[in-house]
C-alpha cells in the first residue's frame, strides 16, 4: 500500500518585510506580503525525498489560513507534492497554537496518513510546538526537530541535535516528524513543476467539514491572551570608525571605557 505523507505548512508574513500586529494583537496577515514559511520548505523537501525513496507514496500538503494561504500550497505543489488541502474559515481568525493543532489534526485524519511532516517552527509565531501537539492529539509518536530523517519498513528514524546531546530516534509509523533547517536545502520549483501544480487538486474545507465548533478556535477560543504589543525602540547607532591601522586599538579603548576590559 502506498505511503501516505501529509505535510503541514503555514503561510506567513515575509520576515524581511514590515511585520506588525492588528488592533486585536493578532498577527497582521492582510497588510503585508506573505509566503510559504521557509522553515516549512524543509518539511516539503524531506517529504518529497522520503516519497522518492519509497517509490510508492502520495504527498498531501495541508494548510490552515486565509485566502492567500493558497499561495503556500501552490509553492509546495510546484515543488512536487501531489495534492493539497486548504482549511479556511473566518472563525479561525486569532486561533492559538492549541487550536491550530486541533484543526490540523482533524484535517490530517480526514486526509489519511502514515507520516505527518512539519517544519521545526513557523517563522512568525516561532513557538515550535505544533508538531508535538499534533502527535499528542493524533495519539502517534513524535519524532521531532530532526536534522536527518529516513523511513524504511514502516519505521521512521532520525537524528535530533539537542542542547546537551545528539540523539538518534526511532518510532513505528504512523508518526509525526518535524525537520530543522539543517535537514537539507529545499529544491526550487522547476518550470515544469510550476506548470504541473496548476492542475493539481486543492480541496477547500471549512470548520463544518471538519466537525469543529467555532467556539473551539479563533480569538475567543484561544487559551492565551495578549494584553499589549509595542514596537521595540530602534537602537541608536553609536560611533563608527574606519580602520586605518588603529581600529583594534580604538575598539579596545571603547571596551575599556565601557568596563568590559
Amino acid at each position: 500500500m502506498s505511503l501516505r505523507i501529509v505535510v503541514c505548512v503555514k503561510y506567513v508574513p515575509d520576515a524581511t518585510g514590515d511585520r506588525r500586529f492588528g488592533e486585536d494583537f493578532t498577527t497582521d496577515r492582510d497588510g503585508v506580503d506573505g509566503l510559504l514559511s521557509e522553515l516549512d520548505e524543509y518539511g516539503v523537501e524531506q517529504a518529497l525525498r522520503i516519497a522518492e525513496a519509497s517509490g510508492d507514496a502520495e504527498v498531501t500538503v495541508v494548510t490552515v489560513g486565509p485566502d492567500d494561504a493558497k499561495d503556500a500550497l501552490r509553492k509546495a505543489l510546484s515543488m512536487g507534492a501531489d495534492k493539497a488541502v486548504h482549511v479556511n474559515d473566518d472563525d479561525l481568525h486569532g486561533t492559538d497554537a492549541l487550536g491550530t493543532s486541533l484543526v490540523l489534526a482533524k484535517a490530517v485524519e480526514q486526509a489519511g496518513f502514515d507520516l505527518v511532516v512539519c517544519g521545526m517552527a513557523s517563522t512568525d509565531g516561532t513557538m515550535g510546538v505544533v508538531p508535538a501537539l499534533l502527535a499528542e492529539r493524533l495519539g502517534v509518536p513524535q519524532v521531532t526537530l530532526l536534522s536527518e530523517v529516513a523511513v524504511e519498513g514502516g519505521v521512521v528514524t532520525g537524528r535530533r541535535d539537542g542542547d546537551a546531546a545528539t540523539e538518534y530516534l526511532q518510532a513505528q509509523l504512523p508518526a509525526v516528524v518535524s525537520v530543522t533547517d539543517q535537514s537539507g536545502e529545499a529544491r526550487y520549483p522547476s518550470f515544469k513543476g510550476i506548470m504541473a501544480a496548476k492542475k493539481k487538486p486543492v480541496q477547500s474545507l471549512d470548520l463544518d467539514d471538519l466537525g469543529i465548533e467555532a467556539e473551539q478556535v479563533g480569538l475567543a477560543g484561544a487559551w492565551t491572551a495578549v494584553d499589549s504589543a509595542a514596537a521595540r525602540p530602534a537602537r541608536t547607532q553609536g560611533t563608527i570608525v574606519k580602520d586605518e591601522g588603529e581600529g583594534g586599538k580604538q575598539l579596545a579603548a571603547f571596551l575599556a571605557a565601557q568596563k568590559f576590559i
Binding site: Q237, V241, L251, A252
Partner: peptide, 23 residues
C-alpha cells in the same frame, strides 16, 4: 552597523588580532 554601539569598518583579520593583543 545600524545596531552598533561601536563599529569598525575594516578587515576582521587586521582588527581582531590587534584588539586581542591590546586586551
Amino acid at each position: 552597523f545600524e545596531l552598533a554601539d561601536f563599529g569598525v569598518v575594516g578587515d576582521l583579520f587586521a582588527v581582531l588580532p590587534q584588539l586581542t593583543d591590546e586586551i
